[in-house]
Design a protein around this nucleic acid. Structure first.
Lengths: 118, 118
DNA sequence: ACAACCTACAACCATTTGGTTGTATGTTTC
DNA sequence: GAAACATACAACCAAATGGTTGTAGGTTGT
């Protein structure tokens, strides 16, 4: 159970980290709009092919995109469900703020010293 | 104008990076639920006070939390508006996927090779 | 006044990150 | 079969990250 949480946190780490780079966000935008090969993507940026390929790999490891082989090309496309799952993590944070979630497990242990929300 | 975009991207980088660490996400949860002093927060984690203080500083620089002085304590509270602004970045990505946004500026330059969305 | 407490920040260290070039392997095309 | 192309990955490097300890300054309580 604690293990499951750790996995979730690992996943969250990977996703937010993948999103914390403008080149990767840009790549994600493009492949959400439609499939692109790695070299097509690479052509758009002022850096080496290998650098772009690494960015794609980071996005893939985070589960934000997936790749499909087509002959010699690797076609990447964005996974909108994964994007939504990141969104719901933020929604959960908003719910904490609203006070609707008293405790996520026992994460919020200390009684709030000053109840000043809203 | 390009400058404005750069600033937005810097901000996005900082926000996603701040969220890409489980300790910081946990701190954010707590301070969204209510104000906490830095030392109260520090007591909750198995690391030095300085380490926690740095995490708080990262969250603050990203604009996700703000601090208020009260005597010798620094009381941190989460900024739900900032959390929402991260959420809307993701919503924008979803909109790209839906095909509702043809071009964000000229970010998506190449015509989509295979129109396979939805 | 002084001790205890809270915060901030500098200096340091190991690891990770984001870039590079080079190499190997598979796929088309001629 | 050879040349050109597309990908993957290793090795390397500078900079950033996430932790540590130490130091210094402001606040509180006795």
């Amino acid at each position: 159970m604690t293990d499951t949480i750790d996995q979730d946190e690992d996943r969250a780490d990977a996703m937010f980290h993948a999103l914390a780079d403008r080149t990767r966000r840009d790549i994600l935008r493009r492949v959400l709009a439609g499939e692109h090969s790695v070299s097509t993507l690479a052509a758009s940026y002022d850096m080496s092919f290998a650098a772009v390929q690494k960015h794609v790999a980071v996005l893939e490891r985070a589960g934000l995109i997936s790749k499909r082989r087509s002959g010699r090309e690797a076609l990447a496309s964005g996974d909108v469900e994964a994007v939504r799952s990141v969104g719901s993590m933020l929604t959960e944070l908003e719910a904490v703020w609203r006070g609707r979630i008293a405790r996520i497990d026992d994460l919020i242990a200390q009684p709030t010293p000053t109840e000043r929300n809203q």
